[in-house]
Design a protein around this nucleic acid. Structure first.
Length: 741
DNA sequence: ATTCTGAGCCAC
DNA sequence: AAACGTGGCTCAGAAT
């Protein structure tokens, strides 16, 4: 309707007339408008922050006489003066950027220190290797054609002799023909003994990249990785907004450093001339070492963070790097059969749903779906959340059940069964994840990233695509009730400690005591499912620990808000030591703005916790005047939930990591390989002649590598050829067969 | 065409 | 008003 009206208006004689008047006025303005007036006009329009910043720098450069309009832009084709536009200004920004680039590069070359050395002959290379062989710490950094470790090539090596304070760049594959470069294989074989010298500690920024490039390009295996300045930065401040080397150097070393993009745009480093390459590359080695010194000094000042970093995080980094390179075997035949089934199922469900909701509805669009469902069921719904909103509706409306089926199946297809096989690496024949060992603020691993996938959120169905190679098993060992044991340990709550000591179920024990019923009646139902008492305890313990309100508790327990609140109050009144742990942690966070994790191994910084709570007068909760106050209070409450959670989740992560370092030794001794860490579970590949002794050793490493005061650790070990199609270690030892592929 | 955000949902 | 923690991926729809 609106469109029609607009069209009519535009075609009306009056509109045409006024349009031509406006055009004439604009032409007149263009003839007379000064540049300042043009700027005022452009800056008055609605602009994104980025454009505004770009326009400001263009204007500054023009005012300084460093940038002028392109003569071709001054007049139109017909020779009339053309007014200065936003588009022209943004074109000038690109020109300015290139100008600035040239200036920065010239300045960098001009100011290149004398201890940056370009190596292009064999004698100089040998001299450099001799110097570095006398070092205890050497910085390394490879320059490459890109960031794909399976396809891109190394074009040069940066190496810094740290005590000698000499920073070398050894180019091998730059296009610059002004000077002959050493052969890449000659350089690699000359450097291999140095890189693999276990007496020299190697330092890098984002070391996994350099480790993997060296491995994939030349089979070089850096033996003694001593420091990663990117990983160290996360420990020093997990809230650091950028972990890019140049940004950190600018911020912490007060050495203004430009990023690769700021200097070279999207040019490959092989296109950079040797003089410029030396100034840029050797500086990387230089600032990486200075950052190392800065970080080491500061980590040493905070609890046991330095010890933790060097004994846990750094050994782990090398393990993780190798794990990423190994990758995962995907059963593509199985995957395509399942995918075909799922596709048919999705199509059938889709057909049934659109028959009821209308065939123009996009079932993947929550907005369209909400409207269509509301029409169909004749009432409004809050959202299209499966669990909360749609599941209750499904009883009365069969079409909603079909929709839920469609959702489930398309999720499996789009995220797992279609996505993963397409990631198979042509070089390795496997799919590769990326694991970020401090990806979560609590110190947990995260996983994923472009060209990779998340190994930690594979659903039970999706896991079935992952298989062990012939003659191998996938073995996974989890920490049983890891976080609950940690809660028991840090709170020293007797009921929990006692339950673990006696080897009985912790939730059932709590429930038995809390409800005053015999343990057996609180454990399992005759059919093996949880009793309501045990289920309640499980929910209330974990969710209350993490700050659930009476509302959240009410929802997850399916009881009234009043009952949920009473339950929560009773729970914390009875288990005072758990309440005390939470209160102490929150008080510490309020006072210090952080909480310690483990034995002062790391911190979770919660600066918001130190804000002063804002008072909002009664009845003014919705007043826009108190928006800021509401935000502050909400940040404080959030920090109060994050503190206790970080201490529990963070300690669990430390236990997992320490155990990984210990388990890695066992894996190497047995000739096994890593599969993945999944928070409270470690998976790895063994040969299929697994013995009782092997399993006992795995059990021992899992339960004795990181001890919790007052609580024994427990582990459950499972064995499979297809991930998730497993049998328990106990059944395996009793002679049960591991399911075939 | 590319980039950002929110909804939804997978994992522990 | 908000309402339990830590992540990552896909899609739609809007913004640029």
């Amino acid at each position: 309707m609106k469109d029609v009206k607009l069209t009519l208006n535009l075609r009306s004689p009056t509109a045409e007339a006024s349009a031509s008047v406006a055009k004439a006025a604009a032409t007149k303005r263009a003839n007379t408008e000064t540049l300042d007036e043009a700027w005022a006009r452009i800056l008055a329009t609605k602009l994104s922050d980025l454009d505004r910043a770009r326009l400001a720098s263009v204007r500054a450069a023009m005012d300084a006489g460093k940038l002028g309009r392109d003569p071709a832009d001054l007049t139109t084709k017909t020779g009339r003066p053309k007014r200065f536009s936003k588009a022209e200004a943004l074109r000038l920004y690109a020109v300015l950027e290139e100008q600035t680039r040239v200036e920065r590069l010239a300045e960098m070359v001009e100011n290149k220190p004398d201890n940056y050395v370009l190596i292009t002959d064999k004698t100089a290379l040998q001299d450099a290797i001799d110097v570095m062989s006398r070092e205890t710490l050497v910085v390394f950094d490879v320059e490459t054609t890109g960031v794909d470790v399976y396809r891109d090539k190394i074009v040069g090596h940066v190496l810094s002799a740290t005590s000698a304070d000499v920073h070398y760049y050894i180019p091998t594959d730059h296009q610059d023909a002004s000077k002959p470069q050493l052969d890449r294989d000659y350089v690699a074989s000359a450097l291999k003994p140095l890189y693999e010298n276990a007496d020299i500690g190697f330092i890098a920024h984002n070391a996994k990249f350099d480790l993997q490039m060296l491995r994939n390009n030349f089979g070089i295996d850096v033996k003694n990785l001593a420091w990663d300045s990117q990983e160290a930065m996360i420990l020093l401040n997990e809230n650091e907004p950028s972990k890019a080397l140049k940004v950190l150097a600018t911020k912490y070393l007060r050495d203004e450093s430009y990023t690769y993009g700021q200097l070279f745009g999207d040019r490959g480093f092989d296109e950079v001339d040797l003089t410029t390459a030396l100034a840029y590359a050797a500086k990387d080695g230089d600032i990486t070492y200075r950052l190392y010194e800065f970080q080491r000094e500061h980590l040493a000042q905070h609890g046991n963070m330095l010890r933790y970093f060097e004994t846990v995080e750094m050994p782990l980094l090398k393990i993780v790097s190798d794990m990423e390179l190994r990758g995962y075997d995907i059963d593509t035949d199985y995957a395509s059969i399942i995918a075909e089934d799922l596709r048919k199922q999705a199509e059938a469900a889709h057909k049934r749903v659109v028959a009821a909701l209308g065939d123009d509805v996009n079932l993947n669009s929550p907005a369209q779906l909400k409207t269509a469902i509301e029409t169909h069921v004749g009432k409004t719904i809050a959202d299209t959340d499966a669990k909360k909103t749609l599941k209750p509706l499904a009883k009365d409306w069969p079409i909603i059940a079909d929709l839920l089926e469609y959702r489930e199946v398309t999720k499996l297809l789009s995220t797992y069964y279609d996505a993963l096989p397409s990631l198979i690496n042509e070089r390795t024949g496997r799919i590769h994840t990326r694991l970020h060992q401090n990806g979560a603020k609590t110190g947990r691993f995260s996983s994923g990233g472009s060209g990779s996938f998340n190994i930690q959120n594979q659903s039970g169905e999706a896991r079935k695509m992952f298989v062990a190679p012939p003659g191998k098993f996938i073995v996974n060992a989890d920490f049983s009730a890891q976080e609950v044991r940690i809660i028991a340990s840090v709170s020293q709550e007797e009921v929990l400690l006692d339950a673990f000591a006696r080897g009985v179920d912790a939730y059932a024990t709590l429930a038995s005591e809390f409800f005053g019923k015999p343990y057996e009646e609180c454990y399992k139902m005759p059919d093996g499912s949880d009793t309501p008492e045990r289920k309640m305890m499980k929910v209330v313990l974990l969710s209350s620990m993490y700050g659930a309100s009476k509302y959240g508790l009410s929802e997850s327990l399916g009881i009234s808000v009043e009952k949920a609140e009473q339950f929560r109050l009773d729970f914390f009144a009875k288990y005072r030591k758990i309440a005390q742990f939470i209160e102490d942690t929150q008080a510490f966070a309020k006072r210090e703005g952080f909480v310690w994790i483990g034995d002062e191994d790391r911190k979770r910084r919660l600066p918001e916790a130190r804000q002063k709570e804002k008072r909002i007068p009664y009845g003014k909760w919705n007043d826009p005047k108190y928006k800021k106050a509401r935000e502050v209070n909400s940040e404080i409450r959030r920090a109060m939930r994050q503190g206790p959670n970080a201490r529990i989740q963070g300690l669990a992560a430390i236990q997992t990591k320490v155990t990984m370092v210990a388990l890695d030794a066992l894996l190497k001794r047995k000739g096994w390989e890593w599969f993945a860490p999944i928070h409270d579970e470690l998976a790895f590949i063994t040969d299929d002649a697994l013995t009782a002794e092997d399993i006992a050793e795995i059990d021992r490493v899992m339960t004795h590598s990181y001890l919790l005061p007052g609580v024994e650790n427990g582990t459950d070990i499972e064995i499979q050829r297809r991930w998730s199609d497993s049998i328990t270690a106990r059944d395996y030892l009793a002679g049960k067969a591991v399911p075939a592929l």
